[in-house]
Simulated scan of single mutants.
Amino acid sequence: MNIYLCFLYIGYSLRHYEISLPWSLSVLPYASFLVMLGKELADYKKRIETPLSFYWDFYCLLSVTAVISYLWKLDLAWNLITPIIPLTLGAVTGTLMVFRLSVWIRNASTMFSNIFTKVGRETYVVVAFSQVTVMCINYLFTLNPLLKYAILVIVLILLKYLKDGINRLVRIKIL
């Protein structure tokens, strides 16, 4: 636990004193703290994973996350991690909220659960190409957000099938 607090303090200090390291390395201590905190939360997975019989816990998590997200912005890319206590609380409640929602979807609908499972297996495509695709769409077109993200989903689906085709062609799973 001391190492957790050490990473938290180092991350906070780098932000507080506006120490900027090359390649945004100044965010690493706080990001490491969040990863270690996530590992601790994973140890409680069985207790968190019980089916939702009451929705009050989900709505509490949603409310706390929404209020914190409205008031402050956690942005690791720009090392915006202060105020550290509410932003860390928001990160934890947001993570738990998404986990509880995932458990509910898994238990409520096999179809949606299977869709999200398949999308989850394509995280590489989503992470690698979504930002570039959105930037290209913004550069080429002026579209409303709904249409822009519909195009994004279509492009990501096409890229997934292109990736699968390349993998079949070379007979090795390279992507």
Rank of each mutant, 00 (worst) to 15 (best):
N2S: 10
I3K: 15
I3R: 14
L5F: 12
L8K: 00
I10G: 01
G11D: 00
Y17N: 14
S20I: 13
P22L: 05
W23C: 03
L25A: 09
S26F: 02
P29W: 02
Y30T: 03
S32K: 06
F33K: 01
V35W: 10
M36T: 03
M36D: 01
L37W: 12
E40I: 12
A42V: 07
Y44H: 10
Y44E: 06
R47L: 13
I48C: 03
I48F: 15
T50K: 15
P51S: 09
S53R: 14
F54H: 15
F58R: 05
F58T: 05
F58A: 08
Y59T: 04
Y59G: 03
L61M: 08
L61G: 00
L61S: 01
L62M: 09
S63D: 04
V64C: 01
S69H: 04
Y70D: 04
L71A: 05
W72Q: 03
L74M: 08
D75E: 04
D75G: 01
D75Q: 07
L76R: 05
W78A: 07
I81T: 12
I85R: 05
I85E: 11
L87S: 00
L89G: 04
G90Y: 07
G90T: 02
A91F: 14
T95P: 00
V98L: 15
R100W: 03
R100A: 02
S102I: 02
S102A: 11
S102F: 07
V103Y: 09
W104I: 07
W104T: 09
I105H: 07
I105Q: 03
R106E: 12
R106S: 06
S109A: 11
S109C: 10
T110L: 14
F112H: 02
S113L: 03
T117W: 15
V119T: 01
R121K: 12
R121A: 08
E122H: 07
V126S: 01
V134P: 03
I137T: 03
N138Y: 13
Y139P: 00
L143F: 13
A150R: 07
I151N: 05
L152Y: 02
V155F: 09
I157L: 13
Y161H: 06
Y161L: 14
L162V: 15
K163S: 08
I166S: 11
R168V: 01
R171H: 11
R171M: 11
I172C: 11
I172A: 15
I174L: 10
I174R: 09
